[in-house]
Amino acid sequence: MSLIVRDMAIARGGVPVLQGVSFDVQPGQALVLRGPNGIGKTTLLRCVAGLQPVLSGQVNTDADRLAYVAHADGIKSVLSVAENLSFWAQIFGRSDISAALEAYQLTALADRPAGLLSAGQKRRLGLARLLVTGRQLWIMDEPTVSLDGEAVHMFASAIRMHLSGGGSALLATHIDLGLAEAHVLDLAPYRATTMAGDAFDEAFL
């Protein structure tokens, strides 16, 4: 499955942030979005994930084949690491979580309540969730926040494995993951200039 975005314009809170964005992500490819804070990286990823409508343009993707990682990891602190992960595995119709625990070195922590994990360990759990979804396109918003160097390395190798298996990834990040094969898209030139109102919000303004 390939992700094709053509001439997309998006708004956050009724204010247009980006316009004229076009890119492709083919199977086996990774695209890294870059740009200053507030340029609209998160909004773009939410639009691609289908959580938010676009102002104009086209996003061609299959909602049944993507998985999304947001700033918040969606971890329940009173459930154990394994319970958190197997819940998401079941939601996506799968059951095996051992490979995901292994990939992010969480096996030793499997029975610990997620509330007791450090910020970096929680993030690793949030990223391990991607592996249990079995989805082809990973959409990740700042996936490396609070990860240490070693964990970033685990993450990069998880992406490499995913890409070599025909998967694809779209991520917004500020750090260099060391993924030589990833393409980079700088969003700064696409900053919106026109004030196009969102018809849905207009009724409330």
Partner: peptide, 12 residues
């Protein structure tokens, strides 16, 4: 609050 609702909205 913990972001699960966004993730559930993107789930099958």
């Amino acid at each position: 609050e913990d972001g699960s609702l966004d993730l559930l909205a993107v789930s099958p």
